[in-house]
Amino acid sequence: MRIPAVLLSRPVRIGVPGAVLAVFLLIAPSSFDGYGISLMSKALALGVLAVSVSILAGYSGLPTMGQAAPFLVGAYTAGVMSTHGHTVGVLQLLCGTLVAAAFAAATGLVAIRTRGVAFLMTTLALGELTVTAAGEWRSLTGGTDGMYGITPIQPLPGMAALSSDRSIYWFVLTATAIVIAVVWWVLRSPVGKLLLACRDHEARMRSAGHPVTRYQWLAYVAAGALAGFGGVLMCTVNAYVSPDDGSFSNSALVLLAVVLGGATSPLGALLGAGLIVATQDWLSGPFPGHGPLLLGLMFIVAVYALPDGVAGIRFRAPKRRGGPA
């Protein structure tokens, strides 16, 4: 029953599920209606947020409970741009990402000083403050009723506005694919190894002269930027933004998506987000009001049945017991 070595090689372990997912994302929409497609778009936007959490929680050892805050900042940036007539999607993505990065750069100065549970709680506090501010700053955000009836975007200047769920999906998929590819490329470079080294051997890295705090601040800013990118996509999908998009429960759900997906796997984080959307919005359809119950059961089952996350079980070779490490 030995698994042939070739099946455990890195290209196969990542390539095969990646290819399956890619094929699914490309062909599934042709058999879905607008509702199913918009759920897939939502899962992708939430997936980008989950990947940003995996950079923090997985690669940097900084489990965050407030990553919905830069997500919210990105979504509002897109909403505000739309109400002022700036409806070019690429431009919204750029601005949303930059504003969220600036937001993370500022809040990061505070958050990054803390570790462990203190980091968890600081990010939670920052997230709650952001949600409160979004509700109170009515002249900009429209208050707790949110920004609604947001004008559909044009992907590039001169292109037609995206009027259907299907065209929005292709835009969201393209944007997600590009940004995930970039994240993947960066994390596979020495940057990723540096982050992991700082996570696992902070003291050793410091004494070797690495400015660990600055690295982690940069990771925080990059994760914030990515979350903002996801927020812009979510604004495009829902044509609606409200403070609730930045809620504690959103932050907690994506953290759980990352745990489900296996902490350091962008692909796993995307899958985790997909599972959450499928459970919360689709599976719960016949049981209105019991979405939280289904999510709860999923988490309980996941904890016992998938100790390494949905992605981990496929990506990791079986451990050899008793042999040399």
């Binding site: 549970v117 745990v259 709860g296 999923m298 988490f299 996941a302 904890v303 100790p307």
Partner: peptide, 17 residues
């Protein structure tokens, strides 16, 4: 910590229902 927090989060959702 995280798996335990995950489990109790799940229990809290089920418990609320």
């Amino acid at each position: 910590h995280l798996p335990q927090a995950l489990l109790t989060f799940g229990l809290s959702l089920v418990g609320a229902d």
